[in-house]
């Protein structure tokens, strides 16, 4: 009976871990999306210096969050976001607003897509 109880407990832990993974991903995604939204607003205001600073902060933040997310998300998916985020600071510095906002939108879509693919929905399961 001890074996069965242990198996049931481990199964509960796995359910908990899956929930924790999804919760962590959602939290990180929400924070990053709001930072990207702020960056978009700054870019459209035309202040290149402030935009570049915000982009640098966003990049540093992404690198930090990447360390957590790589434990729960496939690395190839995260690498795509990293490639896009890495361009933001230089695009802001050179005032390429069109390209910058396009990259920000790409990052948003990628993050949404990562989160969406982790949701326990029928379409994701089948």
């Amino acid at each position: 009976m001890g074996r069965v109880a242990l198996a049931a407990a481990l199964l509960a832990v796995m359910v908990g871990m899956s929930g924790w993974g999804l919760h962590t991903l959602e939290n990180n995604k929400d924070i990053l999306l709001s930072e990207m939204e702020e960056l978009s607003v700054l870019a459209e205001e035309g202040d290149n210096k402030k935009t570049a600073e915000a982009a640098a902060i966003l990049t540093a933040d992404w690198i930090e969050r990447h360390r957590t997310l790589c434990r729960i998300v496939r690395h190839t998916q995260l690498d795509q976001v990293t490639l896009a985020v890495a361009r933001l600071e230089k695009l802001a510095e050179h005032g390429d607003i069109g390209e910058l906002t396009a990259e920000i939108d790409r990052c948003k879509i990628l993050l949404d897509d990562i989160y969406d693919s982790e949701l326990p929905l029928f379409r994701n399961i089948v």
Binding site: A7, L11, M14, G21, C70, R71, I72, T76
Partner: peptide, 21 residues
């Protein structure tokens, strides 16, 4: 190594637990 280790641990432990149950 592109796959997080948790992505292996969760299914292995889940399979084992399911089998015992």
């Amino acid at each position: 190594t592109d796959i997080p280790l948790l992505s292996a641990i969760v299914p292995i432990v889940t399979l084992m637990s399911s089998e015992v149950l």
